[in-house]
Computed example of a mutant assay.
Amino acid sequence: MAGQLGFHIQQDRCIGCFTCQITCKDKNDLEVGQLYRRVHEIAGGGYTEVGNNAYQADVYAYWISLGCNHCQEAPCVKNCPTGAMQKRPEDGIVYVDQEKCIGCRYCTWSCPYGAPQYNPKTGKVGKCDFCRDLLAKGEAPACVAACPMRVLDYGPMEELEKKYGGTRQIKGIPDPNLTKPSLLITPHRAAAVVK
């Protein structure tokens, strides 16, 4: 695979089962409270009176599975004082060099997605590294392989754009212009941003 790697989320089919989150936590042997991939529920709406004591429902709920978006303009990399947070030139994967990490947490404060996670036991930060070990063996990232609904996919961004189209902006996540995330989403109808 060549070019910037990214994720695609078929959000309109996500059932919020948390399998991707659990699999990632298990694969990375994370401590309590640490999550490299998180499933967020977003709900809202209400009821509108349409006359004669009749109401129309406008209620919605959807889920978004987010890990590190391996941003093209990653503030965690830019703001890391030791160079521990790095972006691989060959595929754009953002990862933490544990030898250089001093646990200052500048990366955790810089990331609008909350991807870097501080581990108080080690005094260092960890995050999704796109399962580099699995990719090296020709396997899919753990979250992608585990999804029972096949909602998650990965690959070079150019290929994902051709295959799925989609958007980088939905209701409930930061503006993509902040970091240029390597993320495409086929949105749930209530998540779509109308411009």
Rank of each mutant, 00 (worst) to 15 (best):
A57L: 05
V32I: 14
V125M: 12
C14G: 11
I102F: 11
W63Y: 15
Q72V: 05
K162P: 01
A192G: 13
I9P: 00
I102M: 14
D97C: 05
E90R: 07
T167G: 04
E49Q: 13
I22T: 15
E139I: 01
L134S: 07
A43F: 08
V59A: 10
Y106S: 14
Y60L: 05
P148M: 12
A145V: 04
M1R: 12
Y60D: 06
G165E: 02
G155A: 09
G165P: 03
I64E: 05
G44M: 07
R150P: 00
H188I: 06
G83Q: 10
R37N: 11
D12C: 10
K162R: 15
C147T: 10
L66M: 13
Q34K: 14
L178V: 08
Q4M: 11
G16F: 09
V194M: 12
G16T: 08
Y95F: 15
H8W: 03
G6T: 03
E161T: 08
I185H: 02
H70I: 05
F7M: 06
V59Q: 13
H8G: 04
E41N: 10
Q21K: 10
G114R: 12
N79V: 00
C128Y: 05
V194A: 10
G114F: 10
G138Q: 09
G103N: 02
E139P: 01
V194S: 12
C71F: 00
G3D: 00
E90D: 15
